[in-house]
């Protein structure tokens, strides 16, 4: 079954969506969208690094994403006005990565694969990495769930309950770096942020609790991945962007429902 490239592509998309969507809920609740983008964009630097050193792409991107996430995390603990700095880092990292990768022989040809993903070329070992990473991210989130939620709600309430909100922030940082490293093959660095945020945003109008929102987001992410892949085959469009289009379409529908219900 895994010998069919379409089956592998579908499994890769599902694996990413199941991890990215619940993590994306935290990205949304904590207003970390720029944080996610900065980490994801930095991953292109990781690609350049991996190719230059002949390392697996996963290892290089994980390393650079982790460094970037820790850096950004440390900066954001410093206080307010972080939005601009994050924007600078997100775009700067992307530009530097794009320049750096042109120095690696041959990489220039594959550039769009790293920017937008190359899900139809996913191998069995890619699949193992994607599902392994996704399981790790989900495991982290489930393990720390209550503490993460409390710290997200209010660092002060967390302190009063004996929870260290900075530690919980680092858990999210690691989960984010893992997700970026896993996602690069599926949707590419430019659209990782979309796979984090859009399913979460689409789930919001129908959720009354954080758990319901995370589950719903995972479902919406999974449906988007499969629908996008199907659309890519039917219309002969790039798979990664098609998945994000599907997610955006679902968001448009649920947001309209939410707005209508809110007006009544």
């Amino acid at each position: 079954m895994l010998d069919d490239f379409l089956v592998r592509a579908a499994l890769a998309g599902l694996g990413l969506a199941l991890a990215a969507a619940p993590l994306g809920c935290f990205v949304s609740w904590r207003r970390m969208a720029n944080f996610g983008d900065a980490t994801a964009h930095a991953a292109i630097l990781g690609v350049a690094l991996s190719l230059a050193l002949s390392l697996p792409v996963f290892a290089g991107t994980l390393f650079v994403a982790l460094v970037m996430a820790v850096l950004v995390g440390a900066l954001s603990e410093r206080g307010l006005g972080i939005d601009t700095v994050l924007g600078v880092l997100a775009h700067g990292a992307l530009a530097i990565g794009l320049v750096a990768i042109t120095f690696v022989p041959g990489a220039r040809l594959d550039l769009s694969a790293y920017l937008f993903g190359d899900i139809l070329a996913v191998t069995k070992s890619d699949l193992a990495v994607i599902w392994g990473g996704a399981a790790l991210v989900l495991g982290l989130l489930i393990w720390r769930w209550q503490a993460l939620l409390t710290a997200t709600l209010s660092p002060d309430l967390a302190h009063a309950s004996g929870i260290d909100p900075r530690l919980e922030g680092r858990v999210l940082t690691v989960a984010l770096a893992l997700t970026v490293a896993v996602a690069i093959k599926v949707v590419g660095v430019l659209l990782i942020g979309a796979m984090l945020l859009i399913p979460a945003a689409a789930a919001r109008p129908f959720a009354r609790t954080p758990e319901a929102m995370a589950l719903l987001a995972a479902g919406i992410g999974g449906v988007s991945a499969l629908a996008g892949l199907e659309g890519a085959l039917v219309f002969d469009t790039p798979a990664g962007p098609s998945m994000v289009c599907a997610a955006t379409l679902i968001f448009a529908v649920t947001a309209s429902f939410g707005a209508l219900r809110g007006r009544r």
Binding site: S28, W29, R31, Q146, A147, P210
Partner: peptide
């Protein structure tokens, strides 16, 4: 306590943080 608009939270769920 400012709760982000994207975080759905009922009173009962809030009371269950951090201990169920």
């Amino acid at each position: 306590l400012q709760i982000d608009a994207t975080l759905p939270l009922t009173v009962a769920r809030f009371l269950s943080l951090p201990h169920r």
